[in-house]
């Protein structure tokens, strides 16, 4: 019975991991940049929702939209001002630009908010639905619902709209896309902004059940990397499938291992996949 409960929890958490990770994989697919600051955008989303709750009594699930908008804007500015200049340069620049951003944002939050762990008190915080023998935590369920809705919207955007198709074209082959008249610079900007916005939204959505503190992003970045690598860097559908898998593995492993070692297992999975199948479990990198 504990196993069933762990499976269900794993799927619920995995849905949120999907939300957090699709942005990362999207940005890699389109720009071939691993955004090491993705965890910090999640952290910013959490703080935005936290401030919205403390200042205006906004439910985090509502301020999620605000977090998305603000981080989308920030992402556009960062892409145009910082990422674009290094895109043509060396690998070292690609990596350390976002690493530097991550350091600055993390410590900026530390200077601004201090190192305290903060949380919000929502009415549904401790409630759970009983489904037979299994209990579904309401905050997890709501977060999962948001994740599902956003994933569906993203899927529609990428497959049904012109701009979404352009984005997939750039991911497949940016030169060919340019020749077909796609404005690659604009696609990249929107992709990066979308990645940031989705991370911010995810941050707000998990606030009802998670603490926010300046280095919270690091906990998630570990999982994000594992998810996107498992799914194949750049592969959105792969990331969603992998996110559910990682959620389940993590949740089930707590039944057998001490929680301290929870991440060790995730990392082991990560290293194994990277060394055996660098293109991900589902193969094909670069398939948005």
């Amino acid at each position: 019975m504990a196993l069933l409960q762990a499976l269900v929890n794993g799927v619920l958490v995995g849905g949120v991991y999907a939300l957090v990770s699709v942005g990362l994989t999207l940005v890699f697919g389109v720009m071939e940049i691993v955004n090491f600051a993705q965890g910090e955008f999640l952290m910013l989303g959490m703080y935005i929702a936290y401030l919205g709750f403390v200042g205006f009594h906004l439910d985090p699930l509502v301020s999620a939209l605000l977090a998305f908008g603000l981080l989308f804007g920030l992402g556009m500015a960062i892409e145009a001002g910082l990422v674009r200049p290094v895109l043509k340069g060396s690998q070292l620049g690609h990596i350390f630009l976002t690493v530097g951003l991550s350091v600055a944002l993390q410590n900026g939050a530390l200077a601004l908010f201090g190192g305290d762990f903060r949380a919000v008190q929502t009415p549904y915080q401790v409630s759970a639905l009983a489904l037979g023998p299994v209990r579904l935590s309401v905050p997890y369920l709501l977060a999962f619902g948001w994740a599902g809705a956003v994933s569906a919207a993203l899927h529609l955007f990428l497959t049904r709209t012109g701009f979404g198709r352009a984005m997939r074209a750039v991911a497949a082959n940016s030169t060919a896309a340019t020749l077909c008249g796609v404005n690659v610079a604009r696609v990249r900007m929107v992709a990066f902004a979308l990645g940031c916005g989705l991370a911010g939204l995810a941050g707000a959505v998990i606030l009802p059940y998670a603490y926010v503190f300046p280095t919270v992003g690091f906990q998630y970045i570990v999982i994000m990397f594992t998810v996107v690598v498992l799914g194949g860097l750049g592969n959105v559908n792969g990331a969603i499938a992998a996110a559910l898998l990682v959620g389940v593995v993590q949740s089930v492993s707590t039944l057998f291992f001490p929680t301290v070692l929870e991440n060790l297992l995730v990392f082991t999975l990560f290293v194994l996949v990277l060394s055996i199948r660098p293109a991900g479990l589902l193969g094909r990198a670069h398939a948005l």
């Binding site: 910082l82 630009l97 350091v103 600055a104 410590n107």
Partner: peptide
């Protein structure tokens, strides 16, 4: 200090 480190890193690679 670390904020500054991060910004220096960003500025340098650009």
């Amino acid at each position: 200090t670390k904020v500054l480190y991060g910004l220096i890193l960003v500025a340098m690679v650009i």
